[in-house]
Amino acid sequence: MHRADQHPSRRALLDVTGVLVAAGLTAGCTSDSAGPGRAAPAAADTPTRIPATGRHQAGITLPQPAQGNLLAVVADLDEAVAPGPLLAELGRAISTLTAGTDPRLLGLPPGDLTVTVGVGPRLVRAAGASLPGSADLPRFSRERITPQARGGDLLIQICASDALLVPIVAAALLDQTGDRVRERWRQSGHRGTNVPIGEGRTAPRNLLGFIDGIVGPHTSAEQQRDLWLAGPPAVAGGTLAVLRRMELDLPRFAALSVAEQEAVFGRRRASGAPLSGGTVSSGPELGAKTPDGRYLVPVDAHVRRAHSAVVGTGLMLRRSYSIDEPAPGLLFISFQNDLRTFTATLTRMDTSDALLPFTTTTASGTFLILPGFDRRRPLGSQLFG
């Protein structure tokens, strides 16, 4: 399996050209980098810098809301390459890039740039067969995934409000790894306009027009319970990520009436409120019925089939990024401290979820997002030290 871009700098130039064109077409759009209780900054404002170091890697819960632009790069390590030194080197490069001291930024300010690194099950199993992150994802229905787009050893997630930064940083990091890494696939994506969902939080709309990511572990207590790994020590402070790239059948969904679209999701399209009533921040009342005995939230509605209480799992921090190539769709990313949170949810959705017939998954993988790092504790040193 060989990387399609054997010359990362050339690939980066092509990506930057595409981003320049896109930036020209979307001039005047605002970013979604406003924090809770603050209005979104004007286009000329410089987003607040996000430190790369700490107990957790940036790019998961910080910044809040998430930046508008993402590039996920999935790659394999050559079997002769030791992961520890490579990850430590990547961590040092991430620190200089996010600090704005790396000349490979080409003079651009880093703004709210974040880079998040994860390792795949093969590398985790080499460090410990029973460690969180050692299990591969099972196969699910409605998948059309080539071998190259399934799994992988390394995830590099790059996010920024400035779309120009993303391919430039990717080129710098791939150049840093050299021929020790072979790229499998990459996907860029963008988040829609943010909508207030209560308690100072916002969430974007997806390509289907609905507010996305309303439910999740938002409080510190919820995140300690459902998001962050508490142990073993080698992974404490990390989390588990699932990536799924999906094509969406937009014409068929758009042909539905608004009421039919809302029945698919179990929420109002305009407000995000559950069909059982309340506001966007209200939990759906799954037992609520009409006077003639019909459930207000249909039995196959997405909000019912994926509800954590129904599935019997914890919450997952979900992010969706709209994509326009290789086909219109979304890049779904979830973070959770137990892979079963995702697998049990999708298994239940597989049996009867009204949303799934509009999706086809074309790339998939799971990764242990490494604990945070600093000068004393290099990236990956707890696992591969």
Rank of each mutant, 00 (worst) to 15 (best):
L90K: 08
D350Y: 00
T347W: 00
V235R: 09
F342D: 03
K289S: 12
L243D: 06
G133V: 04
T30Q: 13
P204Q: 01
E143R: 00
D5S: 14
A4D: 13
L330Q: 02
T359I: 04
L155W: 06
G54D: 09
T239A: 11
S134Q: 04
A93N: 00
R268Y: 11
E79K: 09
A306L: 11
A234I: 04
A309M: 01
D179N: 07
A72C: 10
R191P: 12
P83F: 00
G200W: 03
P109R: 05
G133L: 08
E199L: 07
V21K: 08
R244A: 15
T366S: 15
Y321A: 05
T30E: 11
L123H: 11
T101W: 06
S364H: 10
A22I: 01
R180A: 10
V215P: 06
L87P: 02
R11S: 12
S9C: 02
D324W: 09
V264C: 03
T101G: 11
T290P: 11
L174T: 01
A163F: 00
Q261K: 14
L14N: 09
N194T: 13
A163D: 04
T98N: 04
G192E: 02
A203G: 02
G314H: 07
A241R: 05
D136F: 01
Q187E: 07
A171K: 03
R10V: 14
P217Q: 02
P110F: 05
R144G: 00
F265M: 11
A236K: 10
V16Y: 15
L70P: 07
A301Q: 12
G18N: 10
R49K: 12
R184S: 10
I145C: 04
V299W: 13
I158V: 03
Q157E: 09
T359H: 11
Q148L: 14
R252M: 09
G213Y: 08
L113K: 06
T46V: 13
I369C: 07
T341L: 04
P251Y: 07
D5C: 13
E89V: 02
S281F: 03
G198N: 00
L13T: 13
R304P: 02
P274D: 14
S334V: 15
E262Q: 13
F253S: 05
S161C: 09
E79H: 12
T219Y: 08
D45A: 15
D112C: 07
G111K: 05
G365W: 02
R375W: 12
G283P: 07
A93R: 12
G120K: 03
Q67S: 15
T101K: 07
